[in-house]
Amino acid sequence: MEIAVALATGIVTGCSVYLVLSRHLIRVAIGFVLFSTAANIAIFLSGRLGPMAPPVVEAGAGALAADAANPLPQALVLTAIVIGFGLVAFTLVLLLKGFIRLGTVDADDLRETDRPDNAPAAVRPAEPRREAA
C-alpha cells in the first residue's frame, strides 16, 4: 500500500512540475494545487498507513487503543489544506487582476518589471520614457 501511495505522490509531483513549467499562468496555478496536494499526500504517508480506528481515547481508558490511527499527520494535512486553499484563492484573484490589468496570462509577456532602467545621461543618453509612477 505504501508503495502505491508513494508512486501516486511521484506521479502527482511529476504532473505538477510539468504544469508549473508551462507559460500559461492558469496552468501554473493548477500546477501549484497539484504540488501542494503531493506534499499533503507525502505528509499523510509519513505518518504510516495502516491502523484505521479513530484516535479517540475511550471513556474509562487511560490511553489510545493499539489500532488507533496517528492523528498528527491528519492535523498537519488539514492545516496545510486550509492554508493551500487560501493561497490558491489569492493566486486566482491575482491572476484575474493580472488579466484585467495586463491583458495576458502568458508568462512570456511579463517583462515590464525586468526591463533595465534609465541610466544617467553621463553613461547613456537618457531615453524619453515615461515612468509608471
Binding site: 487560501g86 484563492a89 489569492f90 484573484v93 484575474l96 484585467i100
Partner: peptide
C-alpha cells in the same frame, strides 16, 4: 469574513 471578502471581490468584476 475572509471567504465573503474574496467572493465579493470576484463578484465585483
Amino acid at each position: 469574513g475572509t471567504v465573503t471578502a474574496m467572493f465579493l471581490s470576484l463578484v465585483e468584476k
